[in-house]
Amino acid sequence: MTIQLSHYLLLSAVLFSIGVAGVLTRKNLIVIFMALELMMNAVNLSFVALARYMGDSAGQVIVFFVICVAAAEVAVGLAILIALWRHKGSMHTDALAVMKW
């Protein structure tokens, strides 16, 4: 059996779903960050596979942009997390419950 486009896209969809499930169910903020990165990278996989399949380099260029953006995003995210750690001394989502409704 050869590996076809559909296999890549399926893998990408599965990874994305694992990422979504991780963000929604996990309680540790670091693990949530990891799940967010997984979602982004799942999409990157789709882009690369599609670009290769269509013979269009635009898809691969998009991946570079997405990687840069994700790196910038996580840098800010971790900085915010450190600020939260200084206030609450916790990395748990329960630390985020001062404001509700």
């Binding site: 963000v23 903020l29 967010l36 800010v76 995210g77 915010i80 997390l81 206030h87 985020l96 001062v98």
Partner: peptide
């Protein structure tokens, strides 16, 4: 706290 909530849900929606 607001920034972290914003960050997680913002990144989630971006994905």
């Amino acid at each position: 706290e607001a920034a972290l909530k914003y960050f997680i849900l913002g990144a989630f929606s971006t994905a």
